[in-house]
Every structure is written in C-alpha cells, then in structure tokens.
Write a protein that binds this DNA or RNA. Structure first.
Lengths: 153, 153
DNA sequence: TATTGTTATACTCTATAACTATA
DNA sequence: TATAGTTATAGAGTATAACAATA
C-alpha cells in the first residue's frame, strides 16, 4: 500500500507539486467546513460577509473592484450587491468621473450588522483556533497573507 | 434583533478573532481562484479529483467515509461517485460485513487518470508556489496539516 | 428502531452571452 | 470601438426530506 513511495524521488519541483496537491484539498475542505458553520441568524452568505467587511474598511468601492477582490465575475457581484441592497446594507450610486461605474457604499445598517455579527460570525472558527497551540496559530498568521497572495496571483 | 452585547466577546480573544476573520476570506478567495484554474482537459471537478486521490492511496473506501472526508452530505457524494462510475474511474460493490454500505474502489483507468493529470492538474498552483520564497513555501507546508485539522474539527 | 445509501426536489453560487449606457 | 455593469439563461454543487435495504 505504499503509493507514497512514488514521491520519494524528490526533486525540487516534485516537492512543490506535493505541496500543491496537499494545499488544494485542504483549502477546499476547510472552505466547505466554514460554509457549514456560518451564522444562520445573520442571513449573509460568505461572499456577502466578505464584501461588507471590505466596505467597512474602504467605505466605498466600485462594483468591478469588489468583483476583482472576491475573484468573481461582474454578474455574480451584481447579484451579491442586489441582495445586500435589498437588505439595506449597501447603496449604489453612479461614479462621479465615470458614470458607467457603480459605486457601492456601506450604510449605517451595514456597519451595524458587521459589528454585530463579526464575533458571532466567526465563532466556530475562533473556537477551533483557540484549541490550536500558539505555534500552530503563529503558522496560520504567517500563512494568511501568503494564501491571499496566491489568490491574487 | 439586538446588536448590544457583541463586542464583549472580543476581549481575550481579539487576536484569535482577527485571525479568524482573515483566514476565512483568504480560504474562500483562494478556493475560487483554484476553481478557475483547474485543468479543463481532465473533466474532473475539484471534488472528483480529491476523491480519486484519496482512493488512489486507500484503494477502497465506503461512500460514507468519502462523504465525511470531503465534508459533504451523502447524497452529494452519491452524485460525485455516479459521475466517476459513469466515466469508469471507480466501481461500486456492497460491503462484505455490512451490506448496507457501498464500497468504492478505484479502477486501473482511475489510477491512470490520477497519474496522467496529477502534474497538469495542479500546474497553475505549482507555478505560483515556485514563485514564492522558500520560507513562504515552508510556512505553507506547515499550514496544510493545520488547515486539514480545522476542516476535520 | 437505527443506519447506510439513493431518489426527488430545490436552492445557492457561479459563469457566459447578449445587451445598455456611457466613454 | 471599448468598457462598466446588468439581464437572461444555464450549469455545477450542494442540501433536506422521503424512501429502501439492511442491521
């Protein structure tokens, strides 16, 4: 049962390949786990939460910028923003210099829901993180910006 | 719904909470990036690839075990296995001791596709990983088992 | 009765293509 | 013509509920 042995001829690129084929399922499985554990009371999808968090910091971004940030196509972001607008968490207005653009701004209600759900939204993940060792958390703190860099590459 | 008492939860664990709210979008965005970059020639979804990789190592697993591993519900795994069986990559047979179970085994054709697509499937990710520094790759190697632990928690 | 898996059904997320309006 | 966003449509992935077979 030693199929791991086909990895033992370890050149530099084969080690990287092994990292790739380990990282991919890890990301996939953790993402599904997080989707299962998200707060059901705040009726926000993971993308909606992420968009609101970005707007909480940036105040106002174009729809295209949000689509690029979240790595989705513009029609997908249009639908996400529609849902957030219906709930009163964001507003649309035309761009000032370029009126083709649509500027998305967070509302007071949107800020409130971010504050209210921030702790609870990540409750499951926070608890699991607290069960890790300090060293393991330190590894993850270092890993997050690298994962973001890969996502943006 | 009231937003009153939420910030009190952040006192001791604000650092962990910050890690949680950084890790979640990073995982989400990277997963979408990986989905965009997967090999279009091998007609395997990310879940199918992951299932075949698990069976490549384990030879045979129950449908329930595969569902638990991939963090999906049994009906979802049934559909994934149906597709893999249609393509001749896996076979079904009833469990020997417990005939309610369904044992999923990888076929020779399944092994071939794993070998044939392993390098190409992760080509985009492998290239991005090679562009990182050795230190960054080392961080990710340490992070992968921690991410898996979180996914399984 | 409880458990393993399947079938039926529906919902969420996402994409591509075609369109509108600006540039 | 080119670009930013929307509308229309379709596909992939997933879940829950009801069911069948077996324990």
């Amino acid at each position: 049962m030693t199929y791991a042995n086909d990895m033992s001829a370890t050149q530099n690129s084969s080690s990287t390949a092994r990292l790739a084929s380990g990282l991919r399922p890890a990301v996939m499985r953790l993402r599904r786990r997080l989707a299962n554990e998200r707060d059901p009371e705040a009726n926000l999808s993971m993308t909606s939460s992420s968009v609101l968090a970005a707007l909480f910091t940036a105040d106002e971004l174009t729809l295209g910028a949000l689509a690029a940030l979240e790595r989705v196509q513009p029609p997908t972001m249009t639908r996400t923003i529609n849902a957030l607008e219906d709930d009163g968490y964001v507003t649309r207005r035309p761009g000032e210099n370029d009126r083709r653009q649509v500027l998305i701004a967070i509302t007071d209600k949107g800020r409130q829901i971010v504050l209210a759900t921030r702790a609870r939204r990540d409750e499951w993940l926070s608890r699991r993180l607290e069960e890790l060792s300090a060293d393991e958390r330190a590894v993850l703190r270092q890993a997050v910006p690298i994962l973001e860099k890969l996502a943006t590459a």
